[in-house]
């Protein structure tokens, strides 16, 4: 690809009017549209998993409520707030970048990374506690048909819980990687006040990660909240 700056081409109609041609280079809206389309695939993916979940929720209503009530809502709620604030810092960082405050933007990205790590840490604490209770992927309690198995509805609940929060956690890890890369690009001045499509898309990505959690959290932690105070 050419290294010289891109000069948009001009097309001329029969009357001699000139029209600027949209090239693939420096197409802000194109980049944004592309990323939104990518996010639609994530919606479909998590949509399908929620569908599986709802399917078995219909069949095994009580098991789901029971299983849900045993999750640790305090940690889950704490994580919700952490993600909420991280979405704010991410958005403010972009705002600062657009107004030329590069230093402030970088600070905000570091803050977001920190919050993301806190989220993962809390998640790790939760998973460890569940592992110690014998509730984890591959452990006998989550293997159907064994004497120590939980009821089927709970197996599917926890199976999907680990799958979906695991996938969500994977998205967080990818997000941290993207933000580190973004910092590198900002330092190289390849993302700046004029060209910030990469920053914009990573903000979108982070909001998507938040968006998934907005539904994952109540579906797993809250549906059984009325049953007991919960917590391992």
């Amino acid at each position: 690809m050419s290294d010289h700056p891109y000069v948009p081409e001009i097309a001329t109609d029969r009357e001699g009017n000139e029209y600027e041609v949209q090239g693939w280079q420096g197409d802000f809206f194109g980049g944004k549209l592309g990323f939104w389309l990518f996010m639609l695939t994530e919606i479909m993916m998590f949509g399908a998993m929620f569908m599986v979940l709802t399917y078995y929720f219909t069949l095994h209503h009580d098991d789901f409520i029971n299983a849900s009530s045993s999750l640790n809502r305090t940690l889950g709620g704490f994580n919700t707030v952490v993600l909420l604030i991280s979405a704010l810092t991410m958005g403010l960082g972009l705002l600062k970048m657009r107004y030329g405050d590069v230093k402030g933007a970088k600070l905000m990205i570091w803050a977001t990374i920190l919050l993301a790590i806190v989220f993962l840490g809390v998640k790790a604490v939760e998973w460890t506690a569940e592992y110690n209770h014998g509730v984890f992927l591959g452990l006998p309690a989550l293997q159907g048909g064994l004497p120590e198995s939980k009821p089927f509805g709970e197996i599917i609940f926890f199976g999907m819980y680990f799958t979906m929060t695991g996938l969500h956690g994977f998205h967080i890890i990818v997000g941290i990687g993207l933000m580190l890369w973004l910092l590198k690009r900002i330092n190289a001045n390849q993302v700046n006040r004029e060209h910030y499509i990469l920053y914009f898309n990573i903000v979108l990505y982070w909001d998507l990660v938040h968006l998934i959690w907005v539904f994952v959290f109540p579906y797993y932690y809250m549906i059984g909240a009325g049953l007991s105070t919960g917590g391992h």
């Binding site: 979405a87 958005g91 903000v203 979108l204 909001d207 998507l208 938040h210 968006l211 907005v214 539904f215």
Partner: peptide
């Protein structure tokens, strides 16, 4: 919540 995030943050 999702609507707010999508409309304003995104």
């Amino acid at each position: 919540k999702a609507w707010m995030i999508v409309m304003y943050y995104m």
